[in-house]
Nucleic acid binder design. Structure first.
Lengths: 119, 119
DNA sequence: CCATTATATGTCATATCTGACATCGCCACA
DNA sequence: TGTGGCGATGTCAGATATGACATATAATGG
């Protein structure tokens, strides 16, 4: 199993076993995972675009640097609510948010994944 | 204050006072409220389209009828996460979800609101 | 009038999320 | 070799969301 796949599962709070890679997950669960991942990626991008440090964004949101880090690392304890609030604080518009969500798709195989791990 | 405005604020868990209608809310807070409201409306629509009762949807989600009712009534204790999960269960696609979100906008005045109350 | 069905509302114990804090690794640059 | 900024990770007490339950209202059909 490659890194991007592993990350997807971990992002949703799933344990990495031997079998249940994407087996045992319903379409709806996959859609939910992809959505959260898309938001996480957008946040990384938008915070950088806004030229903010995690610390600065945290202050704006009245949150903490460590939680921002968790948001961006796909920590399963981070809610969509928090991600959305963070996104708005970085200046992302509803239009852009919607566009990104519309593009997010449940991944059935390797094809959908961007390689995160080098080489 | 008309009904639609009141609903917006209650949806976000805000108390209805005398002054702070939309004053005192930041742009980001307004965007967040509008987003949640858009999801709530979409859920009402999509559940009906899918010809499901609240009870049936609740069973699919392993939730309860009362919580589905709260989702659709804009109860502030309902998270975006739960709304999104419910939406996917009713068969809403990422594309449609994204489109609806893209259309949701922070309301600055009366203009944006659809009249909910009769007459 | 009485059932039945769908939806709404209030409460509560428990589950999950949250901010805060400590700490670590990494990288730049003196 | 520091030192300082940035980000990642683990923990935890307190805050918030959750499913479940009871009960209410409303509409429909006998």
């Amino acid at each position: 199993m490659n890194q991007s796949k592993r990350t997807k599962l971990e992002a949703a709070g799933w344990k990495i076993g031997s079998v249940e890679e994407f087996l045992g997950l319903t379409d709806q669960e996959r859609e939910y995972i992809e959505l959260k991942l898309a938001l996480r990626d957008l946040l990384k991008t938008s915070r950088t675009e806004a030229d903010l440090t995690q610390q600065e964004l945290a202050k704006r949101m009245k949150s903490s640097q460590s939680r921002v880090a968790k948001m961006e690392s796909g920590d399963p304890t981070v809610s969509i609510d928090l991600l959305v609030k963070a996104l708005f604080q970085t200046g992302v518009s509803s239009a852009r948010l919607g566009a990104v969500i519309a593009e997010s798709r449940p991944a059935y195989g390797e094809s959908a994944a961007q390689n995160t791990d080098a080489s």
